[in-house]
Design a protein around this nucleic acid. Structure first.
Length: 820
RNA sequence: GGGCGAGUGGUGGAAUGGCAUACACGAUGGACUUAAAAUCCAUUGGUCUUUGACCGUAAGGGUUCGAAUCCCUUCUCGCCCACCA
């Protein structure tokens, strides 16, 4: 029997789908919808195995939903702005736009060769003015509400990319793109006030039960809400207020010194004229020059110096020294802490190094005799308060609130909540991005570009060198503009937006991608949104996925949408590794999907990548899996050919009963996985098992030169169940089995519960928990019948011979355990 | 340092309180072939006194009639966060 000719079959059906518009999705408000979305790619020019895995998972879900009768939206587009296009421009002198569009062209071709069921009519690319004008529109809406603002601050700076970075883009102290250690730089930049939504972003994770726990906890961690107290110390000489933030107000009586961050604004005044001034000034300078990584690295010594000044602890009027140390950060809390070395490990280490005093205020019930001198680490556990005046003897947990309330009454402090989340820095000193629609006028100040003047087009002729600041600043025709307010000469903002801005709302644009009047059609968005199933890499857990939630909440505040969360259900697929490592050009270990398509076909690649492991698990690429997938598809192919060659036979109920049971059990299993279990590997193995039962049935049919109906049913079922996974070969086989195309329009098979209802069951019989026999009983046998049948078994008798039966445990339909 | 997750044949993995190792890969043997490839068939956790028994899911303990699965202790690996007060 001939092997199936995948190059011909795959291109034939790809052409058919394109010509027929099989995957075009149309707004039909009365039809149940299903929106499947995979995170859109950066157009690097080539798809890699990670893309293949991501998009194949999405494609199976989309195709399954189509067959199950849903109106499916399954779009694809390109996250086209970004640095690689500029780097290509610098390296090869190409135009970023031309380079990007060429890459998009290549990728579209590769995606088509994989047979993905995308509605290509909805394709969008973020570098098109028709798209990015809405970025600018969103920016203006935020600006009008004070949610986009410019401020001078110490910002993350990547020296290699020569641009600023958002906090979320700093990974392990390095640039997320090139790993270069991030420096700090004082710059005036544009921010989006994501913190305005911090409470909602935190609370609404409750609305995301279908998200992986891991992503939820990463977001919670990132937003970082801490409950505590702000306590007002006073400087002993001047009486100026030093606010500290603590989550442990219960330890206030144990504070033995205060530490200010080196950048703390009060510091200069504190040291002025004191003998410590030069040393402290030197320390401040050194700290400022350290990179964030060096300063925050866990094993770095806690460095600090005494300022010469003292603070008064409001609760007991104690005079304690003020230090400055680089373990205190200006950008969290108040930039100042009260140090309680007995109950905070960092303070403990610092106090020991600098011989600062310790006082125990929480008793450790395990070690009641413990004195501060004996401690070799801080006691951070619970206990009763000691050395804490009126609060002695109170449990420390209730003491937190009690002390805070007590301080609040006396004006010594107040309850306070701090978040770790910072506003989102979006200015980038790069060319290939959305121009920020703002004009600076000497007279009118910062003036937003009027909506009617959008889009602010990216000029095509900027000099891209990778150095020397924003390329747009060098384009006179772009920079020089009349002030929209007063008409006098003014200058445009020359920074562009971070590209994560572009991807924070693209899922809404897909609902009406050609709408030129508004950002999206509200009716269509209301119909299609929310995204029912979103699929992408875990690396976006606190980047794209947080920003998209933020934008959605902003749109809701504008009344543009009426839902809280954009992605109802999220699947984070694992990485595809090669020899235990991430595939990368520099390691030279890239497996090219195109090569696999040429050698084995797109269907085999799709099957292989889904069968290798459950979708969340990372797995190591192995080409042997391709052989296995190819072999399986050929077995299916051959089985259909051979069955089609046989005349239809008479049903022989007894002989084919098992095959029918298997067929319907497989429908049940595969349907469950496609609906949400998403263990495609076991769904595929279920179909393989079905084929393993089809093979002997087929051989028997060939001997009798007639194909029983159950055999046909089993084969047709296998083709339908495989159709979402390996669509090309299934289209071909579906036709060969005598059906009109397309298999995508065929109804998803339903299992018949009556077929699965067996009249006889095989029970496992255990004696003392060990399997000793198997016993066939009628399905409707009662406990007594089962006992009788089991005890009648000769092997069971052998094992219980002469021993008194203590207990018999019966698990209906499964097992009997006899305890002797 | 904190949090989360994982550890099962030669390999990827299945089983999430009820037959451990489904399905596949690899390996071995056989059929077909002049030969090879492909295909098909069989075997494939370990040990032993091999028609069968015992052992076996990182290690040890516990709960249970019954544990890979639940609980405790330990070890190893992975990921995330991390002087966040």
């Amino acid at each position: 029997m001939n092997k199936y000719d995948f190059p011909a079959i795959e291109s034939r059906w790809q052409k058919y789908w394109q010509e027929q518009g099989t995957f075009r999705s149309v707004f039909q408000p009365d039809k149940p919808k299903y929106y499947v979305l995979e995170m859109f790619p950066y157009p690097s020019g080539r798809i890699h195995m990670g893309h293949v895995r991501n998009y194949t998972i999405g494609d199976v879900v989309a195709r399954y939903r189509m067959m199950a009768g849903f109106n499916v939206l399954h779009p694809m587009g390109f996250d086209a702005f970004g640095q690689p296009a500029e780097n290509a421009a610098i390296k090869r002198g190409t135009d970023p736009k031309a380079w990007t569009e060429q890459c998009i062209g290549w990728m579209v071709n590769e995606l088509r060769r994989m047979g993905y069921a995308y509605d290509w009519e909805r394709e969008l690319s973020t570098h098109q003015p028709e798209y990015y004008r809405w970025n600018q529109w969103i920016f203006l809406k935020m600006f009008a509400r004070g949610l986009a603002y410019k401020k001078g601050s110490n910002v993350n700076w990547c020296p290699a990319c020569e641009t600023t970075l958002a906090n979320e883009e700093v990974v392990n102290g390095g640039c997320w793109r090139c790993q270069t250690p991030v420096a700090q730089k004082e710059l005036e930049q544009w921010y989006l006030k994501i913190t305005a939504f911090q409470e909602e972003l935190l609370a609404d994770v409750q609305e995301l039960p279908q998200w992986p726990e891991r992503v939820i906890s990463m977001q919670q961690n990132w937003i970082g809400k801490s409950f505590g107290a702000e306590i007002f110390f006073r400087e002993a000489e001047s009486g100026s207020r030093i606010a500290v933030f603590t989550t442990r107000p219960d330890t206030i009586f144990g504070a033995t010194y205060v530490v200010l961050a080196p950048e703390h604004p009060l510091l200069a005044a504190l040291i002025r004229g004191k003998p410590q001034e030069p040393e402290v000034a030197r320390f401040i300078k050194t700290a400022a020059n350290k990179t964030r990584v060096a300063r925050l690295s866990a094993d770095a010594q806690k460095e600090g110096v005494f300022t010469g000044a003292y603070a008064i602890n409001p609760v007991n009027n104690e005079r304690i020294p003020i230090w400055t140390a680089d373990y205190v950060l200006m950008d969290y809390g108040t930039g100042a802490i009260m140090a309680v070395p007995t109950h905070d490990q960092r303070d403990f280490l610092f106090a020991r190094e600098h011989r600062l005093p310790l006082r125990l205020v929480i008793a450790d019930a395990q070690r009641p005799q413990l004195s501060p001198e004996q401690m070799d680490c801080a006691y951070e556990g619970a206990g009763k308060l000691v050395n804490s005046a009126a609060f002695d003897g109170m449990d420390n947990e209730p003491a937190k609130a009690a002390i805070t309330a007590w301080m609040q009454e006396r004006g010594m402090g107040r309850e306070k909540i701090y978040f770790r989340l910072r506003d989102w820095l979006i200015s980038r000193q790069r060319y290939w991005g959305t121009p920020i629609p703002v004009i600076y006028c000497a007279q009118c100040g910062t003036v937003p570009v009027p909506e009617s003047a959008l889009p602010v087009l990216l000029p095509p002729d900027a000099p891209i060198t990778g150095t020397g600041g924003s390329p747009l600043a060098k384009v006179e025709a772009f920079v020089n503009v009349a002030c929209p307010k007063c008409g006098k000469p003014a200058r445009r903002e020359t920074d562009t937006m971070a590209t994560f801005f572009d991807s924070s709302w693209y899922f809404l644009r897909y609902c009406s991608p050609r709408n030129s009047r508004e950002i999206f059609d509200r009716q269509e968005a209301k119909y299609w949104m929310t995204v029912d199933q979103y699929i992408g890499g875990i690396e976006h857990a606190v980047l794209h996925l947080l920003y998209s939630r933020f934008f959605t909440k902003f749109f809701r505040s504008l009344g543009l949408v009426d839902f809280k969360e954009p992605f109802a259900r999220l699947l984070t697929q694992g990485m595809v590794l090669k020899d235990g490592e991430v595939m990368s050009k520099s390691k030279g270990n890239i497996v090219d999907p195109d090569e696999m398509i040429q050698k084995y076909g797109a269907d085999a690649l799709r099957l292989c990548i889904l069968f290798a492991a459950p979708p969340e698990t990372e797995f190591d690429w192995n080409e042997r899996g391709m052989d296995g997938a190819w072999r399986f598809l050929n077995r299916v192919w051959t089985a259909v050919q051979e069955t089609a060659a046989l005349p239809a036979g008479v049903e022989a109920p007894a002989a084919v009963k098992d095959l029918r049971v298997k067929t319907h059990a497989t429908i049940k299993k595969v349907g469950e996985e496609f609906q949400g279990g998403f263990k495609f590997n076991t769904a595929i193995s279920a179909v393989m098992e079905l084929l393993n039962e089809i093979s002997p049935a087929l051989r028997q049919a060939q001997e009798q030169t007639a194909a029983p109906a159950a055999l046909r049913e089993a084969l047709e079922t296998a083709v339908l169940l495989l159709a979402p996974i390996t669509p090309h070969i299934c289209e071909e086989l579906w036709q060969q089995l005598g059906h009109a195309p397309s298999v995508c329009r065929a109804a998803w098979p339903q299992y018949d519960a009556r077929v699965l209802q067996a009249d006889e069951l095989t029970l496992v019989v255990q004696v003392n928990g060990k399997v000793r026999a198997k016993c066939i009983v009628p399905a409707d046998a009662g406990a007594d019948d089962v006992k009788q049948a089991v005890f009648a078994d000769a092997r069971v008798q052998e094992w219980i011979a002469g021993k008194p039966v203590k207990n018999v445990v019966i698990v209906p339909g499964r097992l009997v355990n006899i305890v002797v």
